[in-house]
Amino acid sequence: MAPLSLLLCFLGSLSLCSAYASAAATLHLDGELPNGHFEESPSSSNLKKTVIVGKHSLPKWEIDGIVEYITGGPQPGGFYFPVPRGFHAVRLGNEASISQNVNVNPGSVYSLTFGTTRTCAQDEVLRVSVPGQSAEISIQTLYSSDGGDTYAWAFKATSKLVRVTFHNPGIQEDPACGPLLDAIAIKEIILPQKYIRGNLVKNGGFENGPHVFKNFSTGVLLPPKSLDQISPLPGWIIESLKPVKYIDRKHFSVPVGFAAIELVAGRESAIAQIIRTIPNKFYNLTFTIGDAKNGCHGSMMVEAFAAKETQKVPYVSQGKGGFRTTSFKFQAVSPRTRITFYSAYYHTKFHDFGHMCGPVLDNVIVFPSL
């Protein structure tokens, strides 16, 4: 998906049209997995209350262990399970999993986007894996209070068929607890091969990223590098303890283009890129910050680092959208220069103190100083 590129193509850029057509020809996957929203239900004969009976009873999926088929809303025992993207979800009991085989192109990079939330007030972990690659993602911290947390995890295909598995490793004290899954999609990630003229930063506008659900989105959380060596955001490194959030123009205020990054966890969420530079040469770093028009308010501060230079950029947010662009000069000290951004403060929504949020970063540009 590249709506900005497609628009520019329509405006008359023949070379861009050709590039877009070439990319589209190789982009085989960008959408939900079969029954990825779990709205195709097991037959009533394969349900024991909410527990699915039979390995192949959940359409398009293979299950192992105690997997429950959940209808969103009030639950027995006083629980409430939000299912914001539809009516149904699955809950994984201790050591339970769901799997599906997916046809892919060997050597290509793919990103899985999945909606998940914890169902008990204790640490819960969701393991996502394909053969030879896996990550255990903690879902203890809730970044949205309406059950809308969405994560992306990337992998490199090593064969024509991969088995995608979501597993509860069973660390909960209460075996009745377990992560809830309500939507799963996949997207082939096109890796940037060349720099855009006038910018030494790859994917500086964050236009190339994971699948975003169309009908409902609270943004897509991108895990830190320690959990995902292959970033679902090409060119960038999530080098912090907590994730950053990928947001899109349809659901948020985005300064430039289709997408941007929201720094949702203060100093615990940072994003970086290593660019090529010439030692002792001066460069300009330009970037845009703002708010996502999502009720995130307060005095914000984005700190930017490049070589030995640091810039602190304030922004007072009313939570209603808006942005400012800033720049500073730095001198490279080596052939590789790391540029890093993070939020100095923690923020929550104005009317929802359980919803973590932060300043928006977009349109990062580095170019030689004259």
Rank of each mutant, 00 (worst) to 15 (best):
L4M: 14
L7Y: 10
F10W: 09
G12I: 10
S13F: 10
S13L: 11
A19L: 11
L27I: 06
G36L: 06
G36N: 02
E39C: 09
E39V: 03
S43R: 13
N46T: 06
N46H: 08
L47Q: 08
K49Y: 02
V53K: 08
H56Y: 06
H56L: 06
W61Y: 07
G78A: 00
F79V: 00
P84Q: 11
R85P: 00
A89Q: 01
R91H: 01
L92N: 02
E95F: 12
E95H: 13
I98W: 01
P106V: 12
L112K: 03
T113K: 04
T113M: 10
F114M: 10
T116G: 02
T117I: 05
R118I: 02
T119L: 00
C120W: 02
A121I: 00
V125I: 15
R127W: 06
V128E: 04
P131R: 08
G132L: 11
I139R: 02
S144V: 09
S145M: 01
G148T: 02
A152D: 04
W153T: 07
K160L: 09
L161S: 13
G170K: 09
E173D: 12
C177H: 01
C177R: 01
K187P: 02
E188C: 11
I190P: 05
Q193A: 09
R197Q: 13
G198E: 14
N199W: 01
V201L: 06
G205M: 03
G209C: 11
G209A: 11
T218C: 05
G219I: 06
L227D: 05
D228Q: 15
Q229F: 12
P234T: 11
W236F: 12
W236T: 06
K245S: 14
I247H: 03
I247M: 09
I247L: 12
H251F: 14
H251G: 05
V256W: 03
G257W: 12
E262Y: 04
E262H: 10
L263N: 05
V264Y: 02
A265L: 03
R267M: 09
A270I: 03
I278A: 12
T288R: 08
D291H: 11
G295W: 03
H297Q: 15
S299P: 08
A304T: 10
E309P: 07
P314T: 07
V316Y: 10
Q318E: 15
T325D: 04
T325H: 01
T326P: 04
K329L: 14
F330K: 07
Q331C: 06
R338P: 04
I339P: 05
Y346A: 07
Y346N: 12
K349A: 14
F350L: 15
H355T: 07
M356Q: 07
P359G: 10
P359I: 14
L370C: 03
